[in-house]
Nucleic acid binder design. Structure first.
Length: 474
RNA sequence: GUCCCUAUCGUCUAGCGGCCUAGGAUAUCGCCCUUUCACGGCGAAGACACGGGUUCGACUCCCGUUGGGGAUACCA
């Protein structure tokens, strides 16, 4: 069979009319993974035939989203709009062969037909008025659309790679419009022609296209073209099971990036939403390419669960290198606190990451938690921290610092910890309390990584600066 | 209205007729670890929507019901 030796070619075909929706991102991911898995090609086509709704900004957003996710397309981006002449040529061919016809019904007529069909319980709305009528009967001034003369009898069967056998009676399908009255092609015509011309072998797309596929199959048939294989993946729903909309949180990939989600976490999450590989949860991109198959795509829709995304995100934060993380939080910090970070700051942050990584769910958290390391003095002390900085405890701080210098304690986590243990024992203070005092003085907060690690990261000089009483409003 | 798809713990899912007293992840709760908060470790609770078949045997196959989603545009 030639099928088996044909190179896999998939495509992602977004319309540039809005953000990159997580569902679309997943569709792109699946197409990409499938192509990579088979050593094939993954193409990007922009469905911009709707000139009114397509915008360059939306295109930018989509492209940015895809590259953030690391989904790189092969070849150059194809604009569907630019293929319009080709689409018209095909429509003309169908016209010439008597497989399509001019329809002079006005939008108002059509609306009436739809209303009527609904009342009568008819499956299709267009009444085929112009199917067998000559253009000479056309009303003056009405520009015609071109409609496909669809099969009216029999059934059309689709063997979908995800949904399995699906059948529909041809009587359910109406004569769809191929060319609008202004001569522009509709989506139905355009997809078929483009997928054919691009030699697409596998069309992986959202479930919402499943019934459309039967219409498209009619066009393939009329043209005598070989059809690609179809895989209709279920849609992603909102947390409450209804359509995933803005009230559920961000519906754009960019929104999650801004929230401090790492691209690896996002792709891992999206991958596991509807696809599985046994009990595996943490899946790297390479592993995904190796394992990905259409067979393991689930048939039912999944709900978008931000909590699980967050847990995956904290995993990838923990796994990331300190340098990578600091690079990621640097712009966040600089923007929020309007301070440009020095090389020394960056250095401190990198050292501090070890203890910070485990404590963040997002890069935003991470940045926030890291801020105290590089914040200008005097520090800002939160309410809880201030409670630990009363007269008595400050006194014990002073004594501790003296103790450290008298005993020439090495400024490292381990020896500072050991020293503190001896110190609290000697002075009959609770370690619980004392460590919080240290923390409050050093970080301005009651929550931080191990305070002795903080001291080590800060270094002796910076730590002592922070212990300086003038810097602590008691 | 008509047509199509779908249905396992709260959520994501494993399961492709006996391995299931249904497994994992996440969330929740408890215990441990502990200088705070996390991380981590251990444990608990938690699901086959319902009703009919088919079968020696159904979570798994078939048919209904119900719930959810989609399509029905001169949008894509």
């Amino acid at each position: 069979m030639t099928d088996s030796i044909q190179k896999v070619r998939t495509r992602f075909a977004p319309s540039p009319t809005g953000d990159l929706h997580p569902g679309s991102a997943r569709t792109a991911l699946f197409n990409w993974l499938f192509a990579r898995h088979h050593g094939g090609e993954y193409l990007l086509r922009i469905e911009d035939t709707d000139r009114k709704r397509s915008t360059p900004e939306a295109l930018d957003t989509i492209l940015n989203g895809l590259s953030w996710l690391g989904i790189e397309h092969d070849g150059s981006i194809i604009s569907q709009f630019k293929q319009a002449d080709r689409h018209r040529e095909i429509a003309q061919k169908l016209l010439d062969e008597g497989k399509a016809y001019y329809c002079y019904s006005s939008p108002e007529d059509l609306q009436k037909m739809r209303d009527l069909a609904k009342i009568k319980g008819h499956p299709i709305s267009y009444d085929n008025h112009w199917r067998n009528r000559d253009s000479s009967e056309a009303p003056h001034g009405q520009k015609p659309t071109v409609r496909l003369k669809s099969q009216q009898k029999g059934i059309t069967t689709l063997v979908d790679l995800v949904q399995g056998h699906v059948e529909i009676k041809n009587a359910q399908l109406d004569d769809m419009i191929l060319l609008r009255s202004d001569g522009t092609p509709t989506y139905m015509l355009a997809v078929v022609v483009d997928d054919h011309d691009m030699n697409i072998t596998h069309v992986i797309r959202g479930d919402d296209h499943l019934t459309n596929t039967f219409r498209q199959l009619q066009i393939y048939k009329a043209l005598g073209w070989k059809t690609p294989q179809f895989a209709h993946i279920p849609l992603i729903h909102g947390p409450d099971g209804t359509k995933f909309s803005k009230r559920h949180g961000s519906t754009s990939v960019g929104g999650y990036a801004n929230m401090g989600i790492m691209p690896k976490a996002m792709t891992n999450y999206l991958l596991r939403l509807g696809w599985s590989h046994g009990d595996d949860e943490i899946i790297s991109t390479n592993q995904a390419i190796e394992w990905f198959n259409i067979n393991s795509i689930g048939k039912s829709p999944a709900r978008f669960d931000i909590v699980k995304l967050l847990s995956l995100n904290s995993h990838y934060i923990r796994e990331a290198s300190s340098i990578e993380l600091v690079q990621a939080i640097k712009p966040i910090l600089e923007k929020k606190h309007k301070k440009s970070l020095s090389e020394k700051d960056i250095d401190t942050l990198i050292k501090g990451m070890t203890g910070l990584k485990d404590r963040a769910k997002t890069l935003l958290d991470l940045a926030e938690n890291a801020w105290f390391y590089v914040a200008p003095l005097p520090l800002w002390y939160d309410e809880k921290a201030q409670k630990f900085l009363q007269k008595e405890s400050i006194e014990s701080l002073k004594i501790f610092i003296l103790y450290l210098s008298e005993n020439n304690i090495l400024w490292s986590h381990d020896s500072l910890l050991a020293a503190a243990r001896i110190f609290v024992e000697k002075n009959n203070i609770k370690m619980r309390y004392f460590s919080q005092t240290l923390r409050a003085a050093l970080t301005g907060s009651t929550v931080s990584p191990s305070i002795f690690e903080v001291m080590e990261v800060l270094g002796k000089e910076l730590s002592l600066q922070r212990f300086n009483l003038e810097n602590i409003p008691a």
